[in-house]
Simulated scan of single mutants.
Amino acid sequence: MTKTKEWFVSWFDTNYYHTLYKHRDYKEAENFMQNLIAFLKVKKDALLLDLACGKGRHAIYLNSLGYNVIGADLSKNSIKKAKKHENERMHFIEHDMRNPFKIKFDIILNLFTSFGFFEDDAEDIAILKNIKNGLNKNGIAVIDFMNCTHVISNLVAEEIQIIDGITFKINRYLENGFIVKEINFEADGKQHKYFEKVKSLDLQKINLYLNSVGFKIKHTFGNYQLEEFNEQTSDRLILVLE
């Protein structure tokens, strides 16, 4: 029996994924990186890993600020696009974050809700272990997750987006402890259905994961301006770990 492809493998590797999210705010990503780099006082000779980098928007911007960056992502398609921007101080690799890293980093960034994809808690914990083991002494990890409490209380159940002539019908719901985004559309003469599923992890649950691998939360922020985290109102749950 063939194993069903995990949702993120099949969806992230399609061109439709890039079509749906083509209007993402690069300025917001750049401001976040500026704020974070300033806050962490990252030295210019630091080696940074953008883990689950997608097409590399954060990595590319960090590199433009003069940093040595490696971007890693499971999606062959995304890495192929990102590799067009490579230079001597920035490289992109295909990598499943459940697998350990071959080298160590000063900063590891896991941004834009690229965590909590797995049914089995042990797989999420394995990722945290890899991140911890992938850091140099005094290294810092940053996990930028959604604030599930806020997301659930403001869940938009149905939405339609028309992009490049494709009508994306989007449904959001809770199922088995996951926040699910179901995406239906017709394109290239076929009906398509994809999912995005992220585990509903509040700060308390994430902290249990972190404690199990010996990570400590150093700072908690609620948005890309690095304002204080509020469980009811903050958009994001941004964790600075050591």
Rank of each mutant, 00 (worst) to 15 (best):
F145I: 11
K169G: 01
I160G: 02
K199Y: 07
M146Q: 10
L201Y: 09
T233W: 05
V198A: 04
N184K: 15
Q161W: 03
T167K: 14
I163H: 03
I166L: 02
C148R: 09
V180Q: 10
Q161E: 15
I143M: 03
Y173N: 07
I183L: 08
I160M: 11
A157L: 09
E196F: 10
Q225R: 10
G189E: 05
E158A: 08
I143G: 02
L210R: 11
T167Q: 06
A157Q: 12
T167S: 12
D188C: 09
N184G: 00
I166M: 06
D164S: 12
N207F: 03
K197Q: 15
E158R: 14
N147G: 03
E159H: 12
Y173A: 06
L226W: 08
Y194W: 10
E158S: 11
Y224W: 10
Q232G: 00
E186M: 05
Y194N: 07
G177L: 10
I183M: 05
Q232S: 09
Y194I: 09
F185P: 05
N154G: 10
Q204S: 12
L201H: 04
I206S: 04
H150L: 02
F178L: 07
N207S: 15
L174F: 05
E159N: 15
V213A: 02
N211D: 12
G165H: 01
N223V: 09
S200D: 12
Q204K: 14
F168G: 07
F168C: 07
C148F: 05
I162N: 10
V142W: 01
T149G: 02
Q204P: 02
L210N: 10
T220F: 00
I217P: 06
S153E: 15
H219E: 15
T149Q: 09
K216L: 05
E175S: 11
L208I: 15
L174N: 11
E231P: 02
F168N: 05
N211Q: 13
I143F: 08
I162M: 09
D202P: 06
V156T: 14
T220H: 03
E175T: 06
N147H: 06
K205Q: 11
G165R: 00
I152W: 00
K216Y: 01
T149S: 13
Q161K: 15
T220I: 15
T149W: 01
S212C: 02
K216W: 00
Y194H: 14
I217Y: 02
I183P: 01
T233E: 08
I166K: 03
S200V: 13
F145V: 07
S200C: 09
E228D: 14
L201A: 00
I166W: 04
I183K: 09
S212W: 07
S212F: 02
E227C: 08
E158K: 14
I163V: 14
E227M: 06
H150S: 07
K216H: 06
L174M: 12
Q232K: 14
E227K: 14
D144L: 12
D164A: 13
D144N: 11
F215Q: 06
F145K: 07
H150A: 09
V198R: 01
L155P: 00
F145N: 13
E182R: 12
E227V: 09
N147C: 00
N207W: 02
F185M: 03
I206R: 05
E196W: 05
N211W: 01
K205G: 01
S153H: 13
L201S: 00
H150C: 07
